[in-house]
């Protein structure tokens, strides 16, 4: 491999990749993941937290797909599909819990539910 002193990484990357370079996919995934994490940490509404988690899962999917493309290997796609199924299951149970929470405690704000039991 030659050393890489090029002034513009973008042009350099073009010589390696026929399209958008892998780093930019990964960077997008990282940003999405960070936003999701920010939501989980800062938002107190259970529903918003769940949606943030969905964001994080999608970020993970994006990395799988990006690598799948680089390696021309479909295993990443399979994993992404499985992740979607797991996310669906998680959403179903999670939303059921939120509804149960609302019914029993009258709130969907997680900081008002801190006795570690319903």
């Amino acid at each position: 491999m030659p050393s890489l002193p090029s002034p513009s990484l973008l042009t350099l990357a073009a010589t390696f990749a026929p399209g958008v370079i892998l780093e930019h996919y990964l960077l997008l995934a990282a940003i999405l993941f960070a936003i999701g994490m920010l939501g989980v940490v800062t938002r107190r509404n259970a529903l918003t937290m769940f949606m943030s988690i969905e964001l994080m899962l999608n970020a993970a999917n994006l990395t799988f797909l990006a690598f799948a493309r680089v390696h021309a290997d479909l295993s990443g796609h399979v994993t992404a599909i499985l992740v979607m199924a797991v996310a669906a299951a998680e959403a179903a149970v999670g939303l059921a819990i939120v509804i149960a929470l609302q019914r029993v405690r009258g709130t969907t704000n997680v900081d008002e539910v801190r006795t570690l039991k319903l």
Partner: peptide, 21 residues
């Protein structure tokens, strides 16, 4: 995101993203 998936060559997953997610 589904559009980006399709850009990355994941046509099927992109469609699933729209249908399922």
């Amino acid at each position: 995101l589904a559009a980006i998936f399709i850009l990355a060559g994941a046509h099927f997953v992109g469609i699933l993203q729209i249908i399922v997610y």
